[in-house]
Computed example of a mutant assay.
Amino acid sequence: MTVTIGTRTLGDAHPTYVIAEIGLNHNGSVEIAKELIDVAAAAGADAVKFQKRTPEISTPEHMRDVPRETPWGTMTYLEYRYRVEFGRDEYLEIGAHAAERGVDWFASPWDEPSVAFLEDLDVVAHKVASASLTDDGLLAALRETGKPIILSTGMSTMEQIDRAVDLLGTENLVLLHATSTYPMPAEEANLRMIPTLKDRFAGVPVGYSGHERGLAISFAAVALGAAAVERHITLDRGMWGSDHAASIEPTELAALVAGIRDIEPALGDGIKRVFPGELAPMAKLRRVGAGAAV
Rank of each mutant, 00 (worst) to 15 (best):
S114L: 03
F86D: 06
H177S: 03
I94E: 06
N25A: 05
N172M: 01
S130L: 01
R68A: 14
V123P: 07
D262C: 09
M282T: 06
I32T: 15
E230K: 08
A266H: 06
S247W: 04
V48F: 11
A96Y: 01
F106S: 02
M63D: 13
M239L: 15
K284I: 04
S218D: 13
D65W: 00
T76K: 05
A228N: 07
I263G: 11
A254P: 06
G214Y: 12
P148L: 10
G154S: 07
W72M: 05
D162W: 01
E188Q: 15
G95C: 08
Q160K: 12
L176S: 06
D236W: 05
R286K: 14
T134D: 06
L173E: 02
R143T: 08
L235H: 03
G291W: 11
S58Y: 02
L256A: 10
H26P: 11
H177N: 10
A266F: 08
D236P: 12
V274Q: 11
A266T: 08
G73H: 08
P109Q: 00
V229Q: 10
G11I: 04
E187P: 00
D104I: 03
L167R: 15
T4N: 11
F219A: 02
V48P: 12
G241I: 03
M193L: 12
R53P: 08
F201T: 04
G238F: 00
V124Q: 10
D243A: 08
E188K: 15
K272Y: 14
E56K: 03
Y182I: 02
S114C: 06
E278I: 00
A140Q: 12
P265S: 07
T76M: 08
T74S: 14
V165E: 06
D120S: 15
P195E: 00
A189P: 01
D65K: 09
R68V: 12
M155R: 13
A258R: 13
Y182N: 03
L151K: 05
M184Q: 14
S209A: 14
Y17V: 01
S242E: 12
P71K: 02
D122A: 15
F219R: 06
L151R: 06
V115W: 07
G95F: 07
L24A: 10
T16D: 10
T74L: 13
E264R: 08
G95I: 03
P109S: 01
A99H: 10
A216L: 14
E264Y: 08
D199T: 12
H14T: 09
Y208C: 04
T145F: 10
A164F: 05
G169P: 03
